Computed example of a mutant assay.
Amino acid sequence: MPTAHAKWVVVETRPLRGKGQPFIRRMLRPNAIEAWETMQKPGGWKRCQPRW
């Protein structure tokens, strides 16, 4: 549950193949962690190094 002191983070996703545009959004850190854990389970998503 986010609190008043939760930090904002920038989440960037992009296609693995091709030169598609990245999808960038701001999320509260607890929500970003929950989304990441959810994406890892069925989709097999992996972390990569930031490109900036």
Rank of each mutant, 00 (worst) to 15 (best):
M1T: 10
P2G: 10
T3L: 08
T3K: 15
A4I: 09
H5I: 06
K7C: 12
W8V: 09
W8R: 09
W8H: 11
W8A: 13
W8E: 08
W8D: 13
V9E: 00
V9T: 02
V11W: 03
E12I: 10
E12G: 05
E12M: 08
T13L: 14
T13Y: 04
T13S: 11
R14S: 12
R14G: 04
R14L: 10
P15S: 14
R17K: 15
R17P: 00
R17S: 14
G18E: 03
G18I: 04
G18W: 01
K19A: 13
G20L: 08
G20A: 09
Q21Y: 04
P22Y: 02
P22F: 08
F23G: 00
F23K: 04
I24C: 13
I24R: 12
I24S: 12
R25Q: 15
R25H: 15
R26T: 07
R26M: 09
R26W: 12
R26K: 09
M27R: 08
L28Y: 02
L28D: 02
L28C: 04
L28F: 01
R29D: 13
P30H: 10
P30F: 07
N31R: 05
N31T: 08
N31G: 05
N31L: 08
N31P: 00
A32W: 00
A32V: 01
A32G: 00
A32F: 02
I33F: 07
I33P: 00
T38I: 13
T38S: 14
M39L: 15
Q40H: 02
Q40G: 01
K41N: 05
K41Y: 05
K41R: 15
G43P: 02
G44R: 01
W45I: 04
W45E: 00
W45L: 01
W45A: 06
W45C: 04
R47E: 09
R47V: 06
C48D: 06
Q49K: 10
P50R: 13
R51N: 10
R51Y: 02
W52D: 03
W52R: 05
W52V: 07
W52I: 03
W52H: 13
